[in-house]
Amino acid sequence: MKLEFELDTYKSEIKPTWCPGCGDYAVLNALQHALTTLQLEPWNVLIVSGIGCSSNLPHFLSTYGFHAIHGRAVAVAEGVKLANPDLHVIVTGGDGDGYGIGVGHFIHAMRRNLDLTYIVMNNEIYGLTTGQASPTSEMGMKTKSTPIVGVIENPIDPIALALSTGATYVARAFSGDVKQMSELVAKGLEHHGFSLIDALSPCVTYNKINTYDFFRKRVYDLNKEGHDPSDLKAAFMKALEWPVMQRDRIPLGLFYRNDKVPTYEDLEPAYKKGNPVKQALGVEDADEILREFL
């Protein structure tokens, strides 16, 4: 069957500028596959990113895009989605952008259960600024900003954070498995509510610890081991396996999905008047409004 939108129709003329071997290529590839699977019209997709190597991603796609400032991509995306709920709004960025400087917006967007899909390319390092510790860098990791004894802070556990904050679709993927990642992204896009895909995306230049080999030795598909994504309690237990509790096994796959929670858009009273961007301007009941001031 001929598709209306082939894989290539989602690619822009701009070639990625990432280092050879960067995990972000796989994320771009997976996203393009997911868009193709769902046959989303490129002009009805808007991808918002922050700042960092991974945040250049929207330039390599043929959809609409907004390359925002550092840490604020989620907030910009919330504004876009609230103003035009008909758009498919995707947020992409790195661990520094989303789990560090922008973690406040991340938490509150999940609490709102807005219908956004957030793909975090998590490489556990700051790459674009040439190798400082990130909020997901592991204890003891030596970086340019932690050269003497290494990192002495606990890493953020984005999966546990998302589960506890109200995200209704929580998954982890790995750049070494594009097929699984693309399926997780496509399901996240289909999901009605806030979807987090924490994408383990190795930085081949600045992170010599969390390499492809590091992950390949440890990852496993939690769904194949019988995890039930409707079970929130079990999802928490799985989330804690890494990085909080162990280092030898890293679960990938869908931790949690709940389609029964209303989204923010479902509850927003302004939408009774229609999609804000499509409403006529002007006020119909000026006299009634003014009467309360008499």
Binding site: G79, L82, N84, G104, H108, K272, V277
Partner: peptide, 28 residues
Amino acid sequence: PQRGVVVKQVEDELAAMNMAVGAGHAGV
């Protein structure tokens, strides 16, 4: 809201301005 305005109390002013940018970009 009854007149079609999305009114959002947000987590901080960073979010307020960034959301307003997103909404303005979307065309409202």
